[in-house]
Amino acid sequence: MEYFLIIISAIFVNNIVLAQFLGICPFMGVSSKLSTASGMSMAVCFVITLATVVTYLLNQYLLVPLNLTFLQTISFILVIAALVQMVEIVLKKFSPSLYQALGIFLPLITTNCAVLGVAINVVSKEFAFGGSAHMLNLAESTVYAFATSLGYGLAMVLFAGIREHLAGSNVPKPFKGLPIAFITVGIMAMAFLGFSGIV
């Protein structure tokens, strides 16, 4: 039951883009086409889940026992950079078309604050899903990270769908491009606000 609540909460109630403001740059950058948006969400999903597991273990078994938690930021970002490099190599080998489509945004997953944000959140914040507030264990962290990245994918794919229509519509000149995109996301965020209070 708790895992179910974690999933609902991470995807809808505390959506990473629309409620937590993480990972906005790639969200705006690659969402103009549905195909790249879904490719990017898959890459991000993979990196977020993997990075959270690795950084959780790193924190639990190395930084905390050695009293080095102030090195969290620096060590986490290095782990994430290495992971992204790995994903890049694997994609290049097995799916060159996807690699081509994601282009510049793949190395940029390193600086996608959603990845570092989730990794830091799970080791430093207490969560309450239905029950009392507590630190997440490894299984809960993994589920939380995976569900959060699904939420990222959901927001991205929905937004890409809207943007494809937006491209063909007649928008006033000063609104063209990013301004109207931000206003659209604002309205989407308002819709997602309706989920608050479920969990």
């Binding site: 629309l18 301004p179 931000f182 604002g186």
Partner: peptide, 14 residues
């Protein structure tokens, strides 16, 4: 809350 952030930024960009 969240929606206002996007809306304000959007209109300020305009």
């Amino acid at each position: 809350m969240a929606p206002g952030a996007f809306l304000v930024l959007g209109y300020l960009l305009v």
